[in-house]
Design a protein around this nucleic acid. Structure first.
Lengths: 336, 336
DNA sequence: TTGAAAGCGCTAACAC
DNA sequence: GTGTTAGCGCTTTCAA
């Protein structure tokens, strides 16, 4: 392994000068800089990140925290989109991403310990369930974090404009003439609660009656199965809504399956509008009308905010931001 | 930050002894060990990974290399499944995962340089396109790697049993009475080629005539759109096959859409069998009969192999393994 | 069973 | 503009 000492020896300069060249210090003559750079190139020099981190206390590493348990983490398109967006800007600013698990060195230590051991500069958190005690530990620490689709007074957050999106969904249905609108919710997640709020607010503003039995709680993990169960439960009532706003596309897929199972068709028997705009939405029959979340923007904004608080030091106050959503009209809703 | 020196001072032992305790050396008395461990616990000691790496030359970090360009990387369920499986076993053995991009420190340097700078112990590669020059650079290095769905004489590989899977698909169609079987391929990727081979071999073994015009090349990225185009191309022929084996589920989704667009239905007008078993497969109409890839097993096996070659040192020879696939019968094929 | 000393590769004061 | 020195936190001989 070639070190700055080797370069120093070959070029006749001191290690300090060599170091300065690689750290873009201004007080090195152009001639010296060129000589050193050339030697480095020729000798195949590659800097050593650990050595640098050891002295500077900056690892240029961002931890990625996401659900481990269900194994569904990486498989969910929401997560994938967010991380893609995040990675793009983080990489361009010189940071690398590392997965943070509760385990480290084969032993359980929790997220905070993991971050400390690895000297992580900051963490991006994408978790449906924010009640995990190990996560709280991290939240209470002074490690810069950005949370997705969550609220916090101490950490930065970025979320999709869930309330506004839900309102748009209900208003769209209203515009189509629907007056009896149900809701299949995403369970007690932050996003789920917000979407429920948005639904409720829109209903109130439009002066529609909210019928509690038309609000069915899906599970927090937004699975197709859960959507199916929810719709079956809804269909078991005598008095059905003419449209239902479903808090997630996977849930909506399940809801549509349940309809089919009961010999009902969408949108003829009931209009359905989802939330997310997952890839398959446009390939369903009928294609799913939905509220598109801009996961990529969510991720890249989160990266901006996190890097800002990493580089701003402790004075940097936590920020919050909302990313707009967009109604995507396809074929699962009709006029009534 | 608490260091082993602090613990040494408090307990009255030397830093060496403290270090020994954390590295499970046998030559420390039980009493001493307990005292030190207790003090460490109480003082909130957390080891410093960079310092350790600096001396030991082992970072306990595995690089993850996957497609950056299309932005489709993390979003593809194949990738997600593989990484989930990989992460599980890597984590349990004490390794952390870090994404490796061509950029590092905001500058382009290539994968190999990135790995060297970070002191990566090994790399898992999940790439559809293995012709990237930066990737070749890594391949020619002596950094332990495991490649997914790829061949190599110098690195370990693990792939899905593509040939066998394709044979199963064709044989299944044959069992249903089909004698004119077409193929929509996955383009010139390794997996795509193998599946084509499997198709060809099965056709030959079953003594069916292969009609070149019934083999349509889809694009390497296995998109729905590409599947749609491929099927449209196929449908433009006068003499259609009664069934088609499609090299990927996304392609199959596209193919089914094309059928619908032309007023044709699956499986009545044509039977379709896919490959992958993506989550949405079972929710399609008709539900897609397909060959299931065990992405999780693919990932965990890859982790085992990589760790084996990391820990085996340079004597460890590259291994190769194939993961069995499984036919999943649903509703997109029928007897003829 | 324990510890002193050296060194991993780099940066940051500070002096020249 | 350039170099000396010390030190980041840890492990590893090797000696006691």
């Amino acid at each position: 392994m070639i070190t700055i000492y080797d370069i120093a020896k070959t070029t006749g300069f001191s290690p300090t000068t060599v170091s300065k060249v690689f750290n873009q210090y201004a007080d090195v003559s152009e001639k010296t800089r060129r000589k050193i750079l050339e030697a480095a190139e020729q000798m195949g020099y590659v800097p050593n990140a650990q050595a640098r981190t050891l002295t500077t206390k900056r690892s240029w590493t961002i931890g990625v925290l996401y659900i481990e348990s269900s194994g569904a983490g990486l498989l969910h398109p929401y997560f994938g989109g967010v991380i893609e967006g995040f990675k793009k800007v983080a990489t361009s600013k010189g940071y690398d991403l590392m997965f943070i698990s509760k385990d480290i060195g084969g032993k359980k230590g929790g997220y905070l310990e993991h971050c400390k051991i690895r000297g992580i500069d900051g963490v991006v958190v994408v978790l449906p369930d924010y009640t995990d005690p190990y996560f709280k530990e991290l939240l209470d620490s002074n490690i810069p974090c950005v949370l997705l689709d969550q609220e916090s007074d101490f950490k930065s957050t970025v979320s999709s404009d869930n309330i506004e999106g839900s309102k748009q969904a209900v208003e769209y249905l209203y515009g189509l003439g629907h007056r009896s609108i149900g809701h299949i919710s995403g369970g007690s997640t932050f996003a789920g609660e917000q979407r429920l709020q948005g639904y409720l607010q829109a209903m109130e503003q439009l002066e529609l009656t909210v019928r509690p039995e038309h609000i069915i709680q899906g599970s927090y993990d937004y699975t197709v199965e859960s959507g199916q169960r929810a719709m079956e439960q809804l269909l078991s009532m005598e008095d059905l809504p003419t449209a239902v706003f479903v808090a997630g596309d996977n849930l909506a897929v399940g809801a549509m399956l349940a309809m089919k199972k009961y010999g009902l068709s969408v949108p003829e028997h009931m209009s359905i509008i989802g939330y997310d705009d997952i890839e398959m939405a446009k390939y369903l029959t009928p294609a799913l009308t939905t509220i598109r979340q801009n996961t990529y923007a969510l991720g890249s904004r989160a990266a901006d905010m996190l890097i800002c608080s990493i580089e701003g030091g402790s004075e940097a106050k936590p920020q919050s931001d909302q990313i707009p959503v967009e109604l995507v009209v396809r074929g699962s809703c009709q006029e009534v």
